[in-house]
Computed example of a mutant assay.
Amino acid sequence: MKLGFNEATCMKKSDVETDLKFCEKYGYDYIELRLDMLKTYLKHNTIDDLKNFFKTSHLKPFALNSIENINFCSKKQWNELIDLFVFGCKVASQIGNPYMVVVPTVGKNVSDKNEQEVFIDSINVLNKLADIAKPYGLKLAFEPIGNRRWVCNSIRQAYEIISTINRGDVGLVIDCINFYLNDKCADIEYLRKIPLDKIFVFHINDCENLPLGILDHCHRNFPGDGCIPIKEITDILKEKGYDKTASLELFRPEYWNMEPEDVIRIGAEKTRVYL
């Protein structure tokens, strides 16, 4: 596997230029750029600046993050989502970024939707987004979020959705903490059922040993500093032949307050153990 970095890891104290600089310095292979950070970057830089960086660097773009709350949108919400999505598609096509991460909806107003409703809506929405993305050569990586507040929260549920869609340009994100948040990886063997060509993106992280219901994304740790069975997960992925990026994605406030260079350096050291 290749070493990847997701910009959420340092986003409160960093920016695109800083992340690019230190990811290149510490030997990362790929970066997952955040759409909000890209918009800030483009206020003072151009797409050509970004293209030129990637042309002359080892570091390459991998997956834009992220289009969120894709389910059960109002017309206004959908129009806003599409504006951001098309922006991402245009950037991706110009810098050679192959994937866009898309995330199900969170909120009290949708948490009572049953699985069949989520299944139908997700198929409809992902097909629409994939049709928009296709001319840009962009693929969609659908990421189930393990907390019950999100309408799609298990790898099994997400795989049933994307396998029914059955398109080469719609696949999955496997995220360690989201896998753990659903059932503490009790169904880890389910990973073996997912075809390799449907695993587009892998997010690597760890977390504190807290009860489900208390555990949240703010409790993420560097790989190896928590209780997630990362070795078992990565061993299964390796056995399947997955050799794309393992992207470090952390949302820990403690890390946000650290110097970005320190987080990126430590993250590289901690993640390489599993590659």
Rank of each mutant, 00 (worst) to 15 (best):
A186S: 09
A186F: 08
D187A: 10
D187W: 08
D187P: 06
D187H: 11
I188C: 01
I188P: 01
I188L: 03
E189H: 05
E189L: 05
E189P: 01
E189S: 06
Y190G: 09
Y190K: 12
L191W: 06
L191E: 06
R192Q: 15
R192N: 15
R192F: 14
R192G: 14
K193C: 03
K193S: 06
K193D: 04
K193L: 05
I194P: 01
P195Q: 06
P195R: 06
P195A: 08
D197A: 11
D197K: 12
F200M: 05
F200L: 04
V201I: 12
V201F: 06
F202H: 02
H203A: 03
H203D: 04
H203K: 05
I204W: 04
I204R: 04
I204D: 02
I204P: 02
N205D: 09
N205S: 09
D206W: 07
D206Q: 07
C207W: 05
N209L: 15
N209Y: 15
L210F: 07
P211L: 07
P211G: 09
P211A: 08
L212E: 12
L212M: 10
G213H: 08
I214Q: 14
D216H: 15
D216C: 15
H217G: 14
H217I: 13
H217N: 14
C218I: 13
C218Y: 13
C218E: 12
H219Y: 10
R220D: 13
R220I: 13
N221I: 14
N221F: 15
N221V: 14
F222L: 03
P223W: 01
P223C: 00
P223D: 00
D225A: 12
G226Q: 13
G226L: 12
C227N: 14
I228G: 00
P229V: 05
I230E: 00
I230Q: 01
E232H: 01
E232W: 01
E232F: 02
E232G: 00
I233Q: 00
I233W: 00
I233K: 00
T234F: 02
T234L: 03
D235M: 00
D235F: 02
D235C: 01
I236Y: 12
I236D: 09
K238S: 08
E239Q: 14
E239D: 14
E239K: 15
K240T: 12
G241Q: 09
G241L: 10
Y242P: 04
Y242S: 05
D243S: 11
D243R: 10
D243K: 10
T245R: 10
T245D: 11
T245P: 09
A246F: 07
A246N: 04
S247R: 11
L248F: 12
L248H: 13
L248D: 12
E249I: 13
